[in-house]
Amino acid sequence: MPERRAAHPGLYPASGEHPPLLGQRCAGCGHVAFPPNPYGCESCGAEPDALESRELAGAGELAAFATVHLHMGKGIEAPFTVGVVVLDDGPAVRATLTCPTDEGLRIGDRVQSVLVSQGSDDDGNETVELRFAPLGASDGGAS
């Protein structure tokens, strides 16, 4: 049975219209972090067993953006646009946006998570990647 896989396993589920980000909350100090880590709390030093999984809603505000012309990353061709998204649930995350260029983007725009297909392998397994779409923009999603 072909399945759908996240391009970044453990950072978001591979399904859902606007999937959450899989973050972490420290039971010791309340620090909320993304991405999660298996080592200890960056804020207070609590050991890993104090770090609880915490879903962070895939919604927030655009704090900065840049259209990238040069990079060494995988799964995308330049130009593409990355943004700093301050999640409604706290942390600021850097993510790829669904729009290839920054035309029409404004700081303060509402954005939400969507899953974008990265293609399928020979067995029909599809890889999806979480990106952020400006609210009201056409759906770039695979859901």
Binding site: L11, K74, V82, A95, T96
Partner: peptide, 15 residues
């Protein structure tokens, strides 16, 4: 570190 983020080397220092 084994800790991945959403952008990896898509965000070089200049970005």
């Amino acid at each position: 570190t084994g800790i991945r983020d959403l952008v990896g080397s898509r965000v070089a220092p200049f970005t």
